[in-house]
Design a protein around this nucleic acid. Structure first.
Lengths: 192, 192, 192, 192
DNA sequence: CATGAATGAGAATTCATTCAT
DNA sequence: GATGAATGAATTCTCATTCAT
């Protein structure tokens, strides 16, 4: 069905391009459907974007939860979380940027609310993981766990982008290690 | 003179709006000049943007350097640096986002190069401050100082934006304190 | 369909106006379509111009070749050729001027090449007719047949334009007769 | 004085560029005066153009008349005339094109009239030379001498332009010889 | 005499959206 | 369900012209 093809194409286009540079033409082209079909299946660009974001984040949460289910040590949980987020930011930089940092893109109230919700849920999810530190032998610093989650997201996003334009200088592994150090040392008194 | 008025208006507009949503019409309107006056003073939109970015960052660097000149303890230097960066991000979020994270906005080679230079200089400036930790009794963690600077910028940017949409929940002081904790604990083994 | 209507309108507008004075607005207006429709059907002004030129010259060549097919005497061929060219210049002065005399109008390489090709083909076509004189009992003067063709085009263009602003002084028949005399006597030692 | 400098610069600019692509900015630049100075000295672009045309043609006529004064044989007169016209067209193609072929450029009535007058005078001048043929032992063909002059101008203009883009193929001498042949054989029964 | 900052009408182009089929 | 031709508002940019100094 073409709805599915459109979403897939839209994920690509919105991931690679800033919202205003991601054109409906390009999406239709990649989905191999007529332009009208986009509007047959979605009320408009922003609604399509909303759908795409939801889909991307659902997939993301599903993947990450699968890895975190077992009662692995906190250290490993953090590591997995970082790894998945780096994947997300490396693949869908523009899309995730909007969700986390630029929700004020001129969307209708409608769309805006859902994006905010999505972000809030995501931050809650992260905050929950971080809070685990408090019940552990390690201690989450004297930090609001939401602020901590937000700061963590920021570090992940900016280092991902820096990595993308300096791939000759660092390996993906370097990136992961350094980000892990920064984040764990910033959030926990000690870990392991 | 209207050149100055245009720059001021452009700083506002580019600070509040994403590059593509910042229109020359809006800038002309706010500067209270005719559209043609923009083009009399600047070759085009991207060149105007470049000018605005340079101006903003020059001012920023001037302000921050003034505060850091004296041989104050590292801890205070970091605190000042954070404070000034929060100011920057709270006032000019879109503008600084482009410089630090989205330089690939479809600019001409010309403009692109200058923006990249500006970013590199800024990161060097930050990295230099961070490296001081190594000569102190405190130790900069086993981190590439540029990656550390980039991560720090990310934390600052994302927490600033979060703060802007949750001003009822946190005070500006809360923000500063928490960010200070996150950053110092993430970058240094201990501080003071 | 509106593509055809646009081409027709564009032929008119480009025929009557110099390229830079022929505006897309005017073309849209005459074609009774919205401005956007022009860009739905053609990538831009210069491409539309190219299409218009090709169409005009294809029609022209078709018409003239139909008349010249039979093995009529050279004299009649020349006469027909002159007649058709006068038609062309009287109807589409600006358009043909560009093709024959002002191809350097600031077009993209792309468009430029096709226009040059068109002109070259046209001159070859004319030169071929003129060369026939050499195999006849008449003799083409000691002239490069391409230069001769170019000169002939020049005479046709300038006399057409003169005629247009002095229609009270000469009839179309006068024009044809005089041009025929000038051209045949200039190119051939004698004719018939 | 700057008026003179403006005229000189304008001659250059209007000679090298089509009227609409010849900008007042460029003229001011080349004349090394401020833009306002153009309007201090001339009421507007078209009036400046008119002045430039008059100057160019006055100079042209003066030069050509100097060469034709003596009672040289008709053949030589024609040759000189051709040579001077080729010079004109090779140096000032756009400017002369407007005068001879594209007077309808959107000029004010005012300017239009003077341009028409200039053209008419020029054609008269040419026609007079051609008429000499009738009183000579040679005979001007059964041609209206004005039409003949116009046709001659057309041949000169188009071959000049062709020459400019095929300079590798022909020398300036070739051009002159061939044009001489074409024109004399077209206008006179025989010459010398 | 001369300036040059400022103007604003107009031009090309883009793109999300609509709608008849 | 799906199409794609058509739209028009918005946007960047150009340039002849004006005018206070």
């Amino acid at each position: 069905m073409s709805k599915e093809r459109i979403i897939k194409a839209a994920i690509e286009v919105f991931s690679e391009n800033e919202y205003h540079r991601a054109s409906m033409d390009e999406i239709a082209l990649r989905a191999q459907v007529a332009k009208g079909t986009l509007y047959y299946n979605f009320p408009g660009k922003s609604q399509l974007f909303k759908t795409v974001v939801k889909r991307t984040f659902e997939d993301f949460i599903r993947r990450i939860k699968a890895d975190l289910q077992s009662s692995i040590p906190l250290k490993d949980k953090i590591q997995q979380t970082i790894r998945h987020h780096l994947d997300l930011f490396l693949e869908s930089r523009h899309l995730s940027h909007i969700v986390f940092n630029d929700i004020s893109n001129g969307f209708e109230e409608d769309v805006l609310d859902e994006l905010k919700l999505l972000r809030e849920e995501h931050l809650n999810f992260l905050a929950t993981i971080l809070e685990e530190g408090k019940c552990d032998e390690n201690y989450l610093r004297d930090l609001d766990s939401h602020i901590a989650a937000v700061g963590m997201i920021g570090t992940l996003e900016s280092t991902s982008k820096y990595f993308l334009s300096h791939q000759n200088k660092y390996s993906r592994d370097d990136l992961e290690r350094q980000v892990f150090t920064m984040i764990t040392m910033s959030l926990f008194n000690s870990i392991e």
